[in-house]
Design a protein around this nucleic acid. Structure first.
Length: 781
DNA sequence: CAGTGAGCGAGCTTCCGCTTGACTT
C-alpha cells in the first residue's frame, strides 16, 4: 500500500517526525508559505469584496512541484502545518495547490515534537478551520493594503530617494525610536544630593571591616551641606535591626524575544546574529524551534531537565514550574526554546557555543528552586539631629537557580534606589559605630536610554506588534531604508559636587564623570523623523500604538466566526483610502524645514531641511536672484538639533588653500567624504585630516604623494576612448567610465601591452557573460 | 567618484509572515 504523505513547514521537523511515525508515513516540508498575493494591483480585487489573487512565487515553484508529485503517488495527504493562524492558512493553500478538498483532508496539530504528542495528534485529526484561514487572509490583505498604499504616498511626497516604504509594523517601530530620541533631547537633568556614610565595625573574627549606610536625598546643595554640618561631633548608634527572609525566582524559559534580549545584554549580539546562530543550532538538532512566543516546555523535556538538575546539583535544587505567557497576542504554536538533550554541554557549531550555553542555563534555571536570602536592615540614629541612616545587607542562604543563571536587566530597569547587595558585619541594637566618612554626592536624573535592537523587540512584543519570525527582519528593514542608524555615542564630561564630612571637617570638591555614552544603540535619522511626522499627521490611526492590538481583536472575531473577513476589511479600507487620496491630492511635499537664523553677510535666512540628497542647511531661497548656498549636514548632526553656529561652520567649505604648480588646491566634502581637488583631479582625505582645519602646508605634500600613488596605479591609459587599465587589490582591471571589467588571469602579466582592440573585446565579453547573480524574480504571467 | 538641493514623469520601488538555501564577496 502507498504511504501516506504528511506535510509540515520545517524540513528539520520533517526528519524528526518521520522517525517517530515510521513506515506508514512519508514526511515532507513545504518551507512555510507556498502562495502569496501577486504584486500587480496589490493582488486584491478591492471592488469585488477584496477578492485575493494568489500566485505561487517563483522561488516556491520547485517545492510545490515536488509536493504535487509526491502527493500523486501517495495514499492520503495529511496536513501538519503549525498550529496558528499562518499555519492554518498554509494548510488551506496546500489544499488549493494540491487539489485536496479542505472539508475532507486530514489536518493535525501538535506543539511539541515528541512521540506521545504526535501519536495523539494522528489519532485525532480534524479538518482545515476556514474561519481561521479567513482571519489570516484578512491579516495578509490588510498588511498589503497598508504597505502598498502608504509607500507610494511617500514616493510622491518625499523629494528623497525612491525606495522608501511604510507599513503597519516598520512605521511604528521607527516611531518608537523617533519619539525616544525626542524625549531624550527634551530632557533636563535634575540634580540632587545623596547621602552615604561609611562606618567601621568588627566582624566575627574581631577584624575591623567597613560598611555603608544610606541617608536621605537632598534637592539642593545648601540642604545637603546643612545636614552634614548638623552631623559634626555626632555619635552614631544602631537603633533597630530587622532580619527578613527574601527569595528570588528564576525567569521563564526563552522565547524568541527574550532570547534576543539576553543574547544582546550578555553576549552583545544583534538580533540577526542571534537568530542566525539559533537557526544553525536548530538545524543541527541541538535546540528546539527558535521562532516561538511560547514559554511552555513539553512533559518529556521537563523530565529530562529534572534529571539533569538532580544529577548536577541534587534533588533539593529541583522545582518544576509551569510558566504562563504574559502576552495576549501569543499564538503558542511551538515550545519554548530549549536544548533537545539536557546532557549535551558542547555543540560543534561555529560561534554557537555561547548561545547554546545561555539557552541551556536558562532552561535549567527555569525548573530550579528559588534562591533564598536573608536581608538585614539596620537603622542608625544620629545624636545631633533627628535623621536616620539605613544600612542594608544581604546574605545568600540557598543559591537555588542562581547556581547556574541570573537574568540581566536593561538600563532603564535598574533602579537608582536599589542598593548593592553586600554583607553587613554583625551588629547589635545600642551598638555605637565609628564614622569614617560621610558624603553627599550630587547625582543627576537620567533620560530614558535609547533602544538597542533587542529592547526595541521587547517593546514591539509588548505592544503585540510583529511576530517572532519578523522581529529581526523588521529591524533590518528600517536600517536598510535609512530611517534608523545603529551607532555609538560618545559621552560628555559633566561636573558634580561632593561634600564630605571627615574628622568633623566639611569639605566640598568638584569631580567629573562621563555621561550619556551609549554603545550600539538605535538613532533615528532625519529621514526617519521627517517620515514619521508625515505619517503621524496624515495616518494617525495606522501609526497608533494600539492599532495592531485593535485589528488583532477583529481577526479573532473572524476566527470565531463572529465577523466576516471582507466586511472587516471594508470597515478599515473606506476611511483609509480617503486619507490616502486626500494626502496625495493636498499634502505638501515633506521638507522638515527648520529656521536657524540670519546670515550676517547677506542678511538672508538660514534654514535646515531635507534635500534631495539628505539633510542640509541652506542660506537664501531658490526664488532669490542670487543662487542659494547649500551644505550637507555631517553624519552626527540632525536638522532638529543643529545650532546656528554649527550650521554656519558648515559653510566654511569649499576652501581654497593656495596655489601649487600654478593651480589652486581646493578642499571640500563630497559624495564620498572629504577630498582635495587639484588640477581637475581628486584625492580623498583620510580620517587623520580635518577638512575644516587642514592648511596649505599639510595639503601640498598630500597632493604630491597621492598623485604619485594614482600614477603608479595606472598601468595604461587610452585617452581617446576614456578607458584605463588600473592596478587593484585583485590584479589589473579595466575601467571604463563608472564600470569595471576584469582582465582574464592569463593576460594579467602583459596587461600593459594590450591594444585597445583587445581591451574592447574583453569588455564586450564581460558584458555578454555577466557573473551569475542570485535568481531574479520573473514577472509571473 | 567628488554636481546637485526641483522637475520633466520613462519605469521602478513597496507590505507582513511563514520557511531555508543559493547566490555573491
Amino acid at each position: 500500500m502507498a504511504k501516506n504523505l504528511l506535510i509540515v513547514e520545517s524540513p528539520a521537523k520533517a526528519k524528526t517526525i518521520e522517525k517517530i511515525l515510521g513506515v506508514d508515513f512519508e514526511v515532507k516540508s513545504c518551507f512555510g508559505h507556498i502562495r502569496d498575493l501577486e504584486k500587480d494591483e496589490m493582488g486584491i480585487d478591492v471592488k469585488n469584496k477584496f477578492a485575493p489573487r494568489y500566485i505561487v512565487p517563483e522561488e516556491k515553484e520547485k517545492v510545490v512541484k515536488e509536493l504535487k508529485q509526491v502527493a500523486k503517488k501517495s495514499g492520503e495527504v495529511w496536513l501538519a502545518t503549525d498550529e496558528d493562524r499562518e499555519g492554518e492558512a498554509i494548510s488551506w493553500h496546500l489544499c488549493e495547490v494540491l487539489g485536496l478538498d479542505p472539508v475532507k483532508t486530514k489536518r493535525i496539530v501538535f506543539h511539541e515534537i515528541t512521540k506521545p504528542a504526535i501519536e495523539k495528534a494522528v489519532k485525532t485529526p480534524r479538518t482545515v478551520d476556514m474561519n481561521l484561514v479567513y482571519a489570516q487572509q484578512a491579516r495578509r490583505i490588510l498588511d498589503r493594503i497598508v504597505g502598498f498604499e502608504l509607500s507610494p504616498v511617500l514616493w510622491r511626497k518625499m523629494s528623497m530617494r525612491n525606495n522608501l516604504s511604510a507599513g503597519r509594523v516598520q512605521s511604528v517601530a521607527v516611531r518608537l525610536i523617533a519619539e525616544r530620541e525626542r524625549s531624550i533631547n527634551a530632557f533636563h537633568a535634575a540634580s540632587s544630593f545623596k547621602v552615604d556614610a561609611q562606618f567601621i565595625a568588627e566582624d566575627i573574627q574581631n577584624k575591623k571591616v567597613g560598611f555603608r549606610a544610606e541617608g536621605n536625598k537632598y534637592s539642593g546643595v545648601g540642604e545637603a551641606e546643612a545636614f552634614l554640618k548638623s552631623c559634626t561631633g555626632a555619635r552614631y548608634t544602631v537603633s533597630d535591626i530587622q532580619v527578613k527572609p527574601a527569595k528570588k525566582s528564576p525567569a521563564a524559559p526563552f522565547t524568541t524575544s527574550t532570547l534576543q534580549q539576553e543574547a544582546s545584554r550578555k553576549l552583545g549580539y544583534g538580533v540577526s546574529r542571534t537568530m542566525l546562530l539559533a537557526q544553525k543550532l536548530y538545524e543541527a538538532g541541538y535546540i528546539s524551534y527558535m521562532r516561538t512566543d511560547s514559554v511552555n516546555l513539553s512533559e518529556s523535556a521537563i523530565g529530562d531537565i529534572r534529571e539533569q538538575i538532580t544529577t548536577s546539583f541534587g534533588a533539593d535544587y529541583v522545582h518544576i514550574r509551569k510558566y504562563k505567557n504574559k502576552n495576549e497576542s501569543a499564538q503558542e504554536a511551538h515550545e519554548a526554546i530549549r536544548p533537545t538533550y539536557m546532557d549535551r554541554e558542547k555543540v560543534d557549531i561555529a560561534d554557537g557555543q555561547k548561545l547554546y550555553e545561555l539557552i541551556w542555563k536558562r532552561t535549567m534555571a527555569s525548573q530550579m528552586a528559588d534562591a533564598e536570602l536573608e536581608k538585614t536592615i539596620a537603622k542608625i540614629d544620629i545624636s545631633t539631629n533627628r535623621e536616620q541612616l539605613t544600612a542594608q545587607g544581604e546574605v545568600l542562604k540557598f543559591e537555588g537557580f542562581l547556581k547556574v543563571y541570573r537574568e540581566d536587566r536593561d538600563d532603564d530597569e535598574i533602579n537608582d534606589e536599589e542598593e548593592s547587595e553586600s554583607m553587613l558585619p554583625p551588629l547589635a541594637v545600642g551598638q555605637i559605630l565609628d564614622l569614617k566618612l560621610m558624603k553627599a554626592t550630587e547625582r543627576f536624573s537620567r533620560p530614558q536610554p535609547r533602544y538597542t535592537e533587542a529592547s526595541l523587540v521587547k517593546k514591539l512584543e509588548e505592544l503585540g506588534i510583529g511576530r517572532p519570525s519578523t522581529y529581526a527582519p523588521t529591524i533590518s528593514t528600517i536600517l536598510k531604508r535609512g530611517y534608523v542608524e545603529k551607532r555609538d555615542k560618545e559621552g560628555v564630561k559633566r561636573e558634580y559636587r561632593v561634600i564630605t564630612l571627615q574628622s568633623d571637617k566639611i569639605k566640598m570638591v568638584t569631580e567629573s564623570e562621563n555621561t550619556g555614552a551609549e554603545k550600539s544603540k538605535l538613532f533615528p535619522t532625519d529621514l526617519g523623523l521627517v517620515v514619521t511626522d508625515f505619517l503621524m499627521q496624515h495616518f494617525k490611526d495606522v501609526m497608533d500604538f494600539g492599532f495592531t492590538a485593535k485589528i488583532e481583536g477583529e481577526f479573532d472575531e473572524i476566527a470565531d466566526g463572529k465577523l466576516k473577513w471582507n466586511s472587516m476589511l471594508d470597515e478599515f479600507y473606506v476611511p483609509f483610502k480617503k486619507d490616502v487620496q486626500n494626502t496625495m491630492d493636498n499634502a505638501e511635499r515633506i521638507k522638515g524645514e527648520r529656521e536657524l537664523g540670519t546670515d550676517p553677510e547677506s542678511g538672508k535666512k538660514v534654514v535646515a531641511r531635507m534635500g534631495r540628497y539628505g539633510p542640509m542647511v541652506q542660506i537664501g531661497d531658490v526664488k532669490d536672484e542670487e543662487k542659494p548656498r547649500f551644505a550637507k549636514l555631517k553624519n552626527t548632526q540632525s536638522i532638529e538639533t543643529i545650532s546656528y553656529d554649527d550650521a554656519m561652520e558648515l559653510f566654511r567649505l569649499p576652501r581654497t588653500l593656495g596655489d601649487f604648480e600654478g593651480s589652486p588646491i581646493l578642499v571640500n566634502i563630497g559624495r564620498f567624504g572629504p577630498y582635495l581637488a587639484h588640477d581637475s583631479k581628486f584625492y580623498s582625505l583620510g580620517k587623520e585630516h580635518d577638512p575644516y582645519e587642514i592648511t596649505f602646508e599639510e595639503a601640498e605634500p598630500l597632493v604630491i604623494e597621492k598623485r604619485k600613488a594614482k600614477e603608479e596605479r595606472t598601468v595604461k591609459l587610452f585617452e581617446k576612448e576614456k578607458i584605463q587599465l588600473l592596478r587593484g587589490p585583485y590584479g589589473i582591471y579595466i575601467k571604463k567610465g563608472l564600470r569595471n571589467f576584469p582582465i582574464p588571469k592569463d593576460r594579467q602579466e602583459k596587461a600593459a601591452e594590450l591594444t585597445i582592440e583587445e581591451v574592447q573585446k574583453m569588455i564586450d565579453e564581460a558584458i555578454a557573460n555577466p557573473p551569475r547573480k542570485a535568481p531574479r524574480r520573473k514577472k509571473s504571467s
